[in-house]
Amino acid sequence: MKRIAVIITDMFQDVEYSQPADAFRKAGHELVNVGIVSAGSIVKGEYGTLVQIDKPVRDVATDDFDALFIPGGYSPDKLRIDDNAIRFTRDFFTKKKPVFAICHAAQLLITAQVLEGRRVTGWKSLVQDIKNAGAEYVDEEVVVDGNLVSSRKPSDIPAFVRESLKMLQ
């Protein structure tokens, strides 16, 4: 069993959180919802899904987790203005721990400056941003590059989950 940090805030894309989260739990992994608000606060998805924050990002360390999961939607754009969220995300790359990023999650990775020289995918509106961050954009349902698993959109979730679970083995 692995312990996965889910970095999330308001306006996340509901199925990009719920479907992978359910699959990770069913595989026996523990999820800890990490946010930029206080523990116990509720964040809301674009379509109304409610998620309780277990720990604020300012109070957690990468060493407490085996992997990082970043759901898409507007959440990554809101997270990227928080210095603690950026530090926390960057630390997973520094320590070469698995990172699972779907859709708009690339926004947080761009701000954390961890994409240079990588192969990555993400939502189509981010293609140029990903390239400007020094990464090679790949238009495929899932791209695995070292410790990073990335996908483009909700229809890619099955492939995203499959490759993320492989990395957790």
Rank of each mutant, 00 (worst) to 15 (best):
K2I: 08
I4G: 02
I8Y: 07
M11D: 12
Q13W: 13
E16N: 08
Y17T: 01
Q19K: 13
Q19R: 11
D22M: 13
A23R: 01
F24S: 01
F24T: 00
R25D: 01
A27G: 01
L31F: 00
N33F: 09
I36K: 06
V37D: 02
V37L: 05
S41C: 08
V43T: 08
V43E: 10
K44H: 12
K44Q: 12
E46R: 15
G48V: 09
G48K: 06
G48I: 10
L50F: 11
L50E: 15
Q52G: 09
I53Y: 07
I53T: 10
K55F: 05
K55I: 03
V57W: 09
D59F: 13
D59R: 10
D59K: 14
V60A: 03
D64T: 05
F65P: 00
L68T: 02
F69A: 01
I70K: 00
P71H: 03
G72F: 01
S75I: 10
L79W: 05
R80M: 13
I81T: 12
D82I: 11
D82T: 08
D82C: 12
D82R: 08
N84W: 13
A85F: 01
R87P: 02
R87I: 04
F88I: 07
F88P: 08
F88K: 05
T89V: 04
F92G: 07
F92M: 09
K95E: 12
K96P: 07
K96T: 09
K97D: 05
P98I: 05
A106L: 04
L108T: 06
I110C: 05
L115H: 03
E116H: 15
R118D: 01
R118G: 02
R118L: 00
R119F: 08
R119P: 04
V120E: 05
W123C: 05
L126K: 07
V127G: 02
Q128Y: 12
D129I: 13
K131E: 15
K131P: 06
N132C: 11
A133Y: 00
G134N: 09
G134F: 10
G134S: 08
E136L: 05
V143M: 08
V143D: 04
V143P: 05
V144G: 02
G146Q: 06
V149N: 08
S150Y: 00
P154H: 08
D156E: 07
I157T: 06
I157R: 01
I157K: 03
P158A: 10
R162F: 06
R162S: 10
S164G: 08
M167Q: 11
Q169F: 14
